[in-house]
Amino acid sequence: MHHANHYYGHSHVLARYCGLDPAEVHRIRGYLQHGWNIGDGMAPDHEFTPGIPLFVWSDQVRRRAWSLGRRPVHVIGAPWAYLLAMDPIPAAAPREGTIYYPFHGWEGQHIVGDHGRLIEEIRATEDGPVTVCLYWQEYRSARLRRRYERAGFRVVCHGYRGGWYKDLDPRFLQRQLAEQRRHRRVASNRLCSAIFYGILAGCEPAVYGDPMRLEGERSSFGGQSRIERQWASLHGVHPDPVRARAVAVAELGADRLLSPAELRRLFHWPAPHPEGAAR
């Protein structure tokens, strides 16, 4: 089905959970939500065939999808939550500093904003070492990378998300998890998937700084202003971590994970080989 099901190695993580070979591409019969959003869970630029199932992360997204006439819709939880279920946080793992995710563009839209201003805000706020994680599109700009490096930040990229069954990266989320577990805090200038991921991975969250914008950005489903209103408790330099975790669990559907057998049935995947897949 849709190539976006394999973004960030999502289908590979779910295949591993289901006992299948995570190195192979297992096609999902339906559309899988591939990032946190405030709409029906699907990317607005994708065309969808009516009647094909949607697999969304949370019940909030399911309700919004139903209100838009989407059918059928299944709540399964985010692939990130399945990854953490398979790879729990090590006891007493040392953490230091902040991993910061500047709002990023994508292949169809670039970012409009002042990175210099954002750098100054980060330097004025964080009291420990900072790792800046850039999306591949920004990371390939040596000029932009140097701006963050000259500010004293370590600069990384988790990898390429893949697309149209090319450049797929089964271990994208594993690298992201390893980086986040090195840090005490996770921060961004917009509430995004990475913030919710970091919270679930044990980081203290923060959302601050110039939110920037996409070229030609449209305020679908209420846009940035709605996000700042509805999820106000997650914005700021030091949001309440207990409240933040409760919100992250709900938004990622971490309390709604299905069994391997249930996922295989929904995705039309086969039972694992008797010898099992390497986990």
Rank of each mutant, 00 (worst) to 15 (best):
H34V: 01
G35E: 01
G35S: 09
W36S: 00
W36N: 04
N37M: 04
N37F: 02
I38F: 00
G39D: 05
D40K: 00
D40G: 07
D40W: 04
D40V: 07
D40L: 02
A43G: 05
D45W: 11
H46D: 10
H46T: 06
E47Q: 10
E47R: 06
E47I: 05
F48K: 02
P50L: 09
G51I: 00
P53A: 12
P53V: 05
L54D: 10
L54H: 14
L54R: 15
L54P: 05
F55Y: 15
F55H: 15
F55K: 15
F55S: 11
V56I: 11
W57Q: 05
W57G: 01
W57A: 03
S58C: 10
Q60H: 12
Q60W: 12
V61E: 13
V61H: 09
V61T: 15
V61G: 13
V61M: 12
R62S: 12
R63C: 10
R64T: 15
R64N: 14
A65Y: 05
A65H: 11
A65F: 12
S67W: 06
L68Y: 07
L68N: 07
L68E: 15
L68V: 08
L68A: 14
L68K: 15
L68H: 12
L68I: 07
G69L: 10
G69M: 12
R70E: 14
R70L: 08
R71K: 12
R71N: 08
R71W: 10
P72V: 13
V73I: 09
V75P: 03
I76F: 02
G77K: 03
G77N: 05
G77L: 03
G77S: 04
A78Y: 01
A78G: 00
A78H: 10
P79Q: 06
W80S: 04
W80H: 05
A81Y: 00
Y82D: 03
L83I: 08
L83H: 02
L84P: 03
L84D: 01
L84T: 05
A85W: 04
D87S: 05
P88F: 15
I89L: 14
I89V: 13
A92Q: 11
A92F: 08
A92Y: 02
A92S: 09
